[in-house]
Design a binder for these strands. Sequence first.
DNA 1: AAAGTAACTTGCACTATACAAGCTATTATT
DNA 2: AATAATAGCTTGTATAGTGCAAGTTACTTT
Lengths: 119, 119
Amino acid sequence: MTDELGKSIFERSHCPIACALDYLGDKWSLLIIRDLLLGKKRYQEIMASPERIATNILADRLKKLEAAGLVIQQAYQQKPVRYEYILTKKGEDLRPVLEALVKWGKAYFPGTTVFKSHE
Amino acid sequence: MTDELGKSIFERSHCPIACALDYLGDKWSLLIIRDLLLGKKRYQEIMASPERIATNILADRLKKLEAAGLVIQQAYQQKPVRYEYILTKKGEDLRPVLEALVKWGKAYFPGTTVFKSHE
DNA sequence: AAAGTAACTTGCACTATACAAGCTATTATT
DNA sequence: AATAATAGCTTGTATAGTGCAAGTTACTTT
């Protein structure tokens, strides 16, 4: 099975977990998805999260998440053009994964709390 | 809040997802957990998985997972001493996270399948 | 005695991440 | 009119993580 560019979409194996981790297996991607699920939309809103993501990493991850079809860019103004980042259904559908992670994290890191959705 | 060595257990923030990703946010840790959940126990069994993890990475991750309290080593023979790796409850409790990831992966990478539990 | 096996470790090249600074186009302030 | 501020980046450099190959130790099997 190949994508439109002819390269296999099964980068490491035919396991759904391995394929998912090819896109999400790092310290930042799922935190960005978390922010977007919580209602954040703009670059500076994500930058303001307490984990202090470096700006080059955020720009890189947004590009990769867009290429992976989890996120789309939407201009909210021209002159100068500025973008909001919106989850696609594919991205939204990660909500149960994040919820399971939250449950586990709260059980084993007592004292942690999820931020409230901000709108 | 600090652990027994006095360093904060909240490495990046007080978010349960961020804390979880400090331990699991890479391309390999969750795949090792997957193997152990499927019933694999020994170094070579994990090495035999189709993703072809490099041996130095596997050794490193098993050490880190043990340090994080997700896995324990158990000798299954002496002379020479050989170990099996067993999930703790903390590790077992990641099952719902993996199940959610499998569901997502199967939906968006059609053609993927999870390996059967091998015992 | 030689080869094989399990569980690693070591060395080196390559890639990813972190931190700091700089850039571009525009709006707001003095 | 000049200066500062803001959003959304890019670039450069240093450190950390990953991948591949080979080597090590302590046995067991042929």
